[in-house]
Simulated scan of single mutants.
Amino acid sequence: MAGQWLQWVRGVVTVHIRDGQPERLVNRALEGGLELSSIRWTSDGKLEFELSVGDFFRLRPFLKETGCRVHVTKRHGMPFWLIRVEKRKFFAIGLGVFFIGIYLLSSLVWSIEVKGNVKLTEEQILAAAKQEGIFPMQWSFKLKDKDILSKELVTDLPGATWVGVEKKGTRIIIQVVEATEPDKPDLESPRHLIASDDAVITEIYTEKGRPVVKKNMKVRKGQTLISGTIGGGEYTQSVVAKGKVRGLVWYEYNVASPLTQEVKVYTGEKKTKWYAVIGNRALQVSGYGKNPFGTSEDVVYEEQAAWRNWKLPFGRLKKTIMEVRTDVRELTVEEAKNNGMLEAKADVMQKAGSDAVVLKEIVLHENSDNGKVYMKVLFEVEQSIVEEMPLVQMQGE
């Protein structure tokens, strides 16, 4: 590796030898102390080899001695690179300024991200960080050591047990671990648990209180399921009734589902706009003009520039405007029925709760008229039927 680097610094040329005695030229050059490499014959019968720039000028006497002529085909190395740079001074200066700019931009703090906070607000944490010198557009080399920042932020933020500070490229991540406090039990008034709907009980579990119904019993809406009154006589006591009661509830729906459906279709026509992104700002660089489509959707794709593991505060954004149209699709009766059933079932689940289970779907009546399918549907659902009712105590009790 060191030898290759030294060769690049000295400069290397690739030459073709014509006429004369090429084999004798190689032997005489090697005997004369020249360093030749990659010696081979080309497909058109010419001898090719590589040698340093210094050895190239020492090759002349051997060429005269053997009657050969030389032609340089390739040049590479620092001497030739410097010649090209000399010819393109402004390009070289611009390239240098570009890399200096990248270095300076990557040495700034561009954004601060806060993680792990629950009780502490992001504004509180950012204010404390600013006091310790962490804020956007701050030079990275001016920041204190991570351990020192962590200790000082813990002191500045009451309620935080640990604060970690991590730098990723131009971004600072502040990870907060807050002190855990035991949950305070909510103050609850005595209550009964009553039925929220007419139902047949499928499951009952009493945690606190007195159950007054059993499994497979039919109950009416408002009927007491678990009483908050326990004991009897002078030992009667009011408690906060707690428990779980599930039952079968029936929902009847009149469904009207159309036999046509509007479908969004991409036409394939599109317009692309490019933007240069610097920080939180975007500057349009191509694709000017108004949106040529009556109906369209935007698809946005952003690329952030990076160098090694650092994300740089600039990049590019591609915005593609896709033309769309709305087509009307004819549905079969079965497809329309399925769509109607899905909408009705979604409404049932919203009313019955996330833990509800639809056990049966019974179509009581069905007919098609005026481009729609009409159905009367009965859903049998197992769900929680618990509702709280405050237990009002009479004065003097």
Rank of each mutant, 00 (worst) to 15 (best):
A241D: 05
V240F: 01
K244R: 13
M389K: 15
P190G: 07
R18H: 12
A256C: 05
R210P: 12
R171Y: 06
A346D: 11
M349K: 07
P182Y: 11
R58I: 06
V9D: 01
D298R: 06
L105K: 05
E366T: 11
A160Y: 03
I102Y: 03
L25P: 04
T170P: 01
K74T: 14
L59I: 04
S140L: 15
F57I: 13
E323A: 06
D19L: 10
M375Y: 05
E252Q: 10
P61S: 14
V213Y: 14
R10G: 14
W110P: 07
G54R: 15
W274Q: 14
Y266E: 14
V255N: 06
E382R: 09
R75G: 09
Y251L: 07
K208E: 03
V85M: 11
P190M: 01
K270S: 15
H16N: 08
M375S: 02
V176C: 12
E323P: 05
D186L: 14
W8D: 08
K311W: 05
E343Q: 14
T260H: 11
S196H: 08
L95E: 10
K119P: 05
K337P: 09
K345R: 13
A352D: 13
L259M: 14
I230V: 11
P61M: 08
R28Y: 05
A29R: 09
G169I: 08
A256N: 06
E113I: 12
Y253W: 04
T229Y: 12
L47N: 01
Y205W: 02
H16M: 04
T73S: 07
G232M: 10
K115S: 06
I17A: 11
R210M: 13
S52Y: 03
T170Q: 01
Q383Y: 05
R18Y: 14
M349C: 00
R84Y: 12
M349D: 08
N339T: 04
K264W: 05
K214R: 14
V263T: 01
W274F: 14
K130Y: 07
N370H: 04
T236A: 00
E31W: 08
L225K: 00
L126C: 04
